[in-house]
């Protein structure tokens, strides 16, 4: 056990997929306090998804450690991790004909016992989480026939059915129209505020990230280069350098969060 118990913590993490390949993550240290709402930004290939995989215990760092509730995550087995940490992946293909309800029920996997299957408590949790994500009306529909926004809400309901303390999301708004982007981010914020979930999400849209997250972490080529409030992280110099794009940072007209405006090269 470590004294300062963050919900999830990376301490000096180096990671590479194959030996002799370059490091994808380099000395990454970060803490997620219980109940925090934190966004991870950075250009494509900066290691965002890899960091999420490391934090979920799926990938083991070459150096450094990940702590879950102050305890080395490697001492947990997958089932116990899944009861505390849920991951919403960037894309989830389900080619089989499962209904939305059956998909959400799969979130109970770390809780249900073999043979006995889902009990009344599992059904109750699934119903609650579908209510929470406004997916109850989709219950009987085949998952594969849902729209992008509906699918994303069902997948979030599935993650919530794990009854986690920590929710990790990989680009939860990618491929969605703005109305659905807002819908998903409002849902995530509600989960954080009302259900007291610790949320950590990778985001590629800097403005949405600034609007919805309390704290942002900027990743560049596998290294944390900024960590703080949106106003502290989204600064013109650092964005120009990390994203190699010419930008101007303005203030949101009503919310006083920074908003990044792109300046075309020509």
């Amino acid at each position: 056990m470590r004294g300062n118990s963050a919900a999830l913590e990376a301490a000096g993490v180096d990671f590479c997929y194959y030996e002799n390949d370059g490091l994808v993550l380099r000395e990454v240290s970060l803490e997620l306090g219980a109940g925090e709402l934190v966004g991870l930004i950075g250009p494509n290939g900066s290691g965002k998804t890899t960091l999420l995989r490391v934090l979920s215990g799926l990938l083991v760092p070459n150096r450094g450690k990940v702590y879950l509730d102050g305890q080395d995550i490697r001492t947990f087995d997958r089932r116990r991790i899944a009861q505390r940490v849920a991951v919403v992946p960037q894309e989830l293909a389900m080619p089989f004909a499962f209904s939305a309800y059956e998909m959400v029920m799969m979130g109970r996997t770390p809780h249900v016992r073999p043979i006995l299957g889902a009990g009344p408590r599992d059904r109750q949790v699934v119903a609650e989480k579908m209510e929470l994500t406004a997916t109850s009306v989709l219950a009987e529909r085949p998952f594969s026939e849902l729209s992008g926004g509906e699918k994303q809400r069902v997948i979030i309901a599935m993650a919530l059915a794990q009854e986690p303390e920590i929710l990790l999301l990989d680009e939860p708004t990618v491929h969605l129209d703005i109305n659905h982007q807002v819908e998903i981010l409002e849902l995530i914020k509600r989960l954080n505020r009302r259900e007291r979930l610790t949320v950590f999400a990778t985001m590629h849209d800097l403005n949405l990230a600034a609007l919805y997250f309390d704290r942002l972490i900027l990743l560049d080529r596998g290294q944390v280069v900024a960590n703080g409030s949106p106003a502290e992280v989204l600064r013109e110099e650092s964005i120009r350098e990390v994203f190699r794009a010419d930008v101007q940072v303005q203030q949101h007209p009503t919310h006083h969060t920074p908003q990044v405006v792109i300046l075309p090269l020509t």
Binding site: R53, S56, L58, D77, R78, R79, R80, I81, A82, Q83, V85, A86, V87, P89, L92, A93, M94, P95, F96, F98, M106, G107, T109, P110, V112, P114, I115, G117, Q162
Partner: peptide
């Protein structure tokens, strides 16, 4: 095999997601 039916269902989501659902893939 029947006792592993839940795990087989999780496998249908892909191995990465099966791991996130607590399956020792």
């Amino acid at each position: 095999a029947y006792t592993l039916a839940n795990d087989l269902n999780a496998f249908l989501l892909g191995e990465e997601q099966a791991a996130y659902l607590g399956v020792n893939v």
